[in-house]
């Protein structure tokens, strides 16, 4: 398993850069991962990241649709906050595994 330094901490990541130990995550680390993805995190980003982490630890499968229904952010804003592939990008920054669903 590879290690990568974010905000001065050594983080265990897989070959795609996703955290393999979500408990190593914190806000500073998230900021460093985000900068690597070309993003500067705002409060709104953190609200989404917190939501994703909560759902992940509750054992739920994450989809863009479920994020859109969360009340935290709608689908359009989710795409705007994490441009390109929002779910892939947001889970990477949230320090949780990449979702595997097709929808």
């Amino acid at each position: 398993m590879a290690q990568k330094e974010f905000a001065g901490q050594m983080i265990e990541v897989n070959e795609e850069g996703y955290f393999t130990k979500p408990e190593q995550w914190n806000q500073e680390v998230a900021g460093a991962v985000a900068r690597e993805e070309g993003l500067e995190l705002t409060e709104k980003h953190f609200a989404v990241l917190d939501y994703l982490r909560k759902r992940h630890f509750a054992g739920e499968a994450l989809t863009i649709r479920s994020v859109g229904k969360s009340g935290v952010v709608d689908v359009k804003d989710f795409y705007a906050l994490f441009p390109g592939a929002p779910l892939k990008k947001a889970t990477k920054i949230a320090g949780i595994p990449k979702p595997t669903g097709c929808i």
Binding site: I64, R65, G68, D74, V75, F78
Partner: peptide, 9 residues
């Protein structure tokens, strides 16, 4: 709703 998801993205 699927159209909504697609167009929102």
């Amino acid at each position: 709703e699927f159209f909504e998801l697609i167009t929102a993205g």
